[in-house]
Design a protein around this nucleic acid. Structure first.
Length: 573
DNA sequence: ATGGGTCCT
DNA sequence: AGGACCC
C-alpha cells in the first residue's frame, strides 16, 4: 500500500548521531554483547491455510486444504488430523479425507499482503528483520536483549516456552540472554496473534541456522529456545544432510557421491577433500553449517541490490523510485568502503562449540570410518598446534571431540575463547565479535527514537508471567482458534494465547478482527494503544515518520546500516 | 513439482 | 543470465 515518501533524512541523521553513544553506552556489556547474538526465527503455522481461515472463519472447524494445481501445498490442522499433509496430491488427500474443503491458493495476493504485515509488525520492534519466503522471518534482537538485560533483574527473567532438551530451566547469568530472547519472542508472537490473528512458532538461538532449526521442535504455535551447549545435540538430531538449511539437492548429491550421509559425516570429513568438490569458500561454509556455525547476518529485506545498480549502467528501471529515494543511502551506506570503517562488520567470528556438552563424560561414539578419515587428513589433525590449542580449551569442551573437528573450526573455537576473557564462560561465545562496534545498534536505537518502543511496552505486560493483561479484554468468540492452537503446549506456560486469551484480545468487540488486520500496521498499533489504555510507554510514532528510509545495504553492510530501512519496501507492488 | 523469492558467480 | 537455495 502506500508508503510515505520522503522524510527519512531525519532518520539517517539520528542514526549517525546515536552511533557513538550507543557504542559507548554498551561498553559495560561489551563482553556479553559481542560474544553472541540473539536471533529469533518466526515460522507461521500452515500460513496459507491460516489466511484463508481468517478470510472465511467458517473454515476453521473444517478440514481445509490449499490447492495449487493438483497439489495440496498446505492444510490446516483439522485436515492433518484426518491424515492430510503438505505436498500431498489432491486425489490422495480427498481419498484420506473426503470432507476436505479445498481452496485454490494460486493467487498469492492475500498471502503476500498478510506476509508483509507480519514482517512490518516485527520491524516495528526492531528493523533487523529478514524474510524467508512468505511465512518465515528472522530477527536479530541482540541489542534489544542487551538493553532489556540492563534494566531487568535476573530474578524477573524466565524462559518463555520450551528450552531445547530441557523440561525446565532456571535463569542464571549464563543463559540470561537466551531467556530474554525467549520473552521477546513470546511477546512478538503475542503481538502477531493479537493484531493479525496469526499463530506461529519461534526459535531462539545464537545464529540463524540454529534459530530456524530449533523453531520447529514443537509445533504448532509454540516456541523453543536453544542453549548454546545444546548445539551439537540439535545438529546430530537432524536426519540427513538435506535437513541442514543451506544444503540443497545439488549439494546433497555431491555429498552422497563422497560417501557422506549424516550430519556427523560432514562435520568430520577432511576439509581438503571437501574443497576439491566445492571450492574453499563453499566447503567451509557447509562444514560449518553441519557443526551449527552460521555467521551470516540477518539481512533486512529491501529492494534488490542497490550496489549493482550503482555499477550497472543506470539502466534498471525496476527500482527507479527506490533509487531516487535512496540516493543518499547509496552513497553513504552501500559502498564497500563501509566495511573498512568498522571492525570487520561482515566477518563475524562465530564460535559456538559444535560438539560440546555441559558436562557429559562421554561423547557419542564416533564412527570408525570417520576417525580414519580424520587421521589421514592433515587438515584435521595437525598435532603440533593441537597441543597448544587443547590447553586453551575452556571447561565443557571435550578435547577428544575437539581434536576431531576440522582445523578451521577448531581455530574459530579457539580464537573466540582467546578474545574475550569472560566470553568463554558462555558455552557458545562470540557469534560475532564485530557486533560491538556494529552500527546495527544505532539503527536499532534510532528506529526506536521516533518510533515507539514496542518492546518495552510489550515487556511491561509480560514482565509478570502470571498476568496477561492483554488477554483479559475479551474472552468470548473465536474460540475455535483457541481450541486449535491454544492449549497444545503443556510446558509452555507463558506462551501465547492460552485459551484464556482470544485472538485480537485488544480489539473491542465491535471491531471486526479481519478488517482490523487489513489496516496499516502503524494504524493498528495506534488503535491498540488507545484501546488498551496501557501506560504504553510509547505513543505511536507519527504515522509516517517511520516508513521512509530504505535499506539497500546488503551483505557488506549488513549488520550495520540496516537500521535505516523502513517499511516502505514492504510493499509488494 | 508449483510459483514465488534471494544470493552468488 | 544461470545456478543453487529457500518456502
Amino acid at each position: 500500500m502506500d508508503t510515505d515518501e520522503e522524510g527519512d533524512n531525519d532518520w539517517d541523521r539520528s542514526l549517525e548521531s546515536d552511533m557513538l553513544e550507543t557504542t559507548e553506552g554498551s561498553s559495560t556489556n561489551r563482553v556479553t554483547s559481542i560474544s553472541q547474538r540473539v536471533i529469533l526465527h518466526f515460522d507461521l503455522d500452515c500460513f496459507y491455510a491460516q489466511v484463508e481461515m481468517i478470510r472465511n472463519p467458517a473454515l476453521r472447524t473444517k478440514p481445509l486444504g490449499i490447492q495449487q494445481k493438483y497439489l495440496i501445498v498446505t492444510c490446516n490442522y483439522v485436515a492433518r488430523e484426518h491424515g492430510v499433509s503438505k505436498m500431498m496430491s489432491v486425489t490422495d488427500a480427498v481419498e484420506k479425507c473426503p470432507q476436505l474443503v479445498l481452496v485454490k491458493g494460486e493467487d498469492l495476493t492475500h498471502y503476500r499482503e498478510m506476509s508483509y504485515k507480519v514482517t512490518e509488525l516485527l520491524m516495528s520492534y526492531c528493523p533487523l528483520v529478514e524474510r524467508l519466503g512468505f511465512d518465515e522471518n528472522f530477527m536479530d534482537v541482540t541489542e534489544m536483549v542487551e538493553r532489556r538485560l540492563k534494566d531487568t533483574r535476573i530474578s524477573d527473567l524466565f524462559f518463555s516456552g520450551h528450552v531445547y532438551k530441557h523440561e525446565c530451566m532456571a535463569v542464571d547469568d549464563e543463559n540470561a540472554r537466551q531467556a530474554v530472547g525467549s520473552m521477546i519472542a513470546a511477546e512478538m508472537r503475542q503481538a502477531i496473534f493479537s493484531t493479525l490473528g496469526l499463530t506461529g512458532c519461534a526459535g531462539i538461538a545464537h545464529n540463524k541456522l540454529l534459530a530456524k532449526l530449533v523453531s520447529g521442535t514443537f509445533k504448532p504455535n509454540q516456541q523453543t529456545t536453544l542453549l548454546p551447549y545444546s548445539t551439537a545435540e540439535l545438529m546430530s538430531s537432524l536426519r540427513g544432510l538435506i535437513k541442514v538449511p543451506g544444503i540443497g539437492y545439488k549439494t546433497l548429491e555431491k555429498l552422497k557421491a563422497l560417501g557422506l550421509e549424516s550430519v556427523r559425516d560432514l562435520q568430520l570429513y577432511p576439509l581438503p577433500d571437501l574443497v576439491k568438490e566445492f571450492g574453499e569458500v563453499n566447503a567451509k561454509r557447509i562444514q560449518k553449517l553441519a557443526c551449527g556455525f552460521d555467521d551470516s547476518p540477518v539481512t533486512p529485506a529491501g529492494p534488490p541490490q542497490v550496489e549493482s545498480d550503482i555499477c550497472e549502467p543506470a539502466a534498471n528501471s525496476l527500482f527507479t523510485q527506490a533509487d531516487v529515494l535512496h540516493k543518499e543511502d547509496i552513497s553513504s551506506n552501500s559502498m564497500k568502503p563501509v566495511k573498512h570503517t568498522l571492525i570487520s562488520p561482515t566477518q563475524e567470528l562465530q564460535t559456538q562449540p559444535p560438539l560440546i556438552k555441559p558436562k557429559s563424560p562421554r561423547q557419542p561414539v564416533l564412527e570408525h570410518s570417520q576417525v580414519t578419515n580424520m587421521n589421514t587428513s592433515e587438515s584435521c589433525m595437525s598435532n603440533a598446534p593441537e597441543k597448544t590449542l587443547r590447553s586453551k580449551l575452556p571447561p565443557g569442551v571435550d578435547p577428544e571431540v575437539f581434536e576431531l573437528l576440522p582445523e578451521h573450526i577448531q581455530m574459530e573455537l579457539i580464537s573466540s575463547f582467546q578474545n574475550e576473557d569472560s566470553a568463554q564462560l558462555n558455552y557458545g561465545p562470540a557469534d560475532t565479535s564485530s557486533e560491538v562496534v556494529d552500527p546495527a545498534d544505532h539503527s536499532t536505537l534510532a528506529f526506536n527514537q521516533p518510533a515507539p518502543e514496542p518492546c518495552e511496552s510489550a515487556l511491561n505486560y509480560n514482565r509478570n508471567p502470571a498476568s496477561h493483561e492483554l488477554g483479559k479484554a475479551w474472552s468470548s468468540a473465536q474460540s475455535s482458534m483457541e481450541l486449535d492452537f491454544g492449549l497444545v503446549e503443556a510446558t509452555d506456560s507463558h506462551d501465547i494465547p492460552p485459551a484464556t486469551q482470544a485472538p485480537q484480545s485488544d480489539i473491542p468487540a465491535n471491531v471486526d478482527p479481519y478488517v482490523f488486520s487489513q489496516l496499516p500496521v502503524d494504524v493498528q498499533r495506534e488503535l491498540l494503544t488507545e484501546w488498551r489504555q496501557q501506560k504504553s510507554v510509547l505513543k505511536i510514532p507519527s504515522k509516517h515518520s517511520h516508513k521512509t528510509s530504505n535499506t539497500k545495504d546488503r551483505k557488506s553492510t549488513a549488520k550495520g546500516s540496516q537500521g535505516n530501512n523502513i517499511l516502505k519496501y514492504f510493499k509488494p507492488n
